[in-house]
């Protein structure tokens, strides 16, 4: 079994989303957002990325769990015959 891409990708976007939304919440309504038409863009976009990232992460974990269960069910020669699959 190999690395499921959704896990690191989900983790990265969750962290970026978290950073942006916390920073956005702390700075909401400030002069910082004059250039962005006074929209609290860090907060809104941070939340979007947080949802996207955690969704990807959860899907990756579920996929990895399923792949592990599938491998346990399969006879050992299937792996030797090139039945390897990565990333989901």
């Amino acid at each position: 079994m190999n690395l499921d891409l959704r896990i690191p990708m989900g983790l990265m976007f969750t962290l970026v989303g978290l950073i942006l939304s916390v920073y956005g919440w702390a700075t909401r309504g400030s002069l910082l957002y004059l250039r962005a038409d006074n929209l609290d863009v860090n907060l809104y976009w941070g939340l979007v990325l947080l949802v996207f990232g955690s969704g990807m992460f959860l899907l990756g974990r579920r996929g990895e769990r399923r792949a592990r269960e599938e491998m346990l069910r399969k006879p050992p020669q299937a792996e030797a015959q090139g039945g390897r699959r990565r990333g989901h």
Binding site: L20, Y23, T27, L32, Y33, R35, A36, V41, N42, G46
Partner: peptide, 11 residues
Amino acid sequence: LHYLPSGLLGL
């Protein structure tokens, strides 16, 4: 540089 504030600018 014109539109994005700190945070989104980094992204």
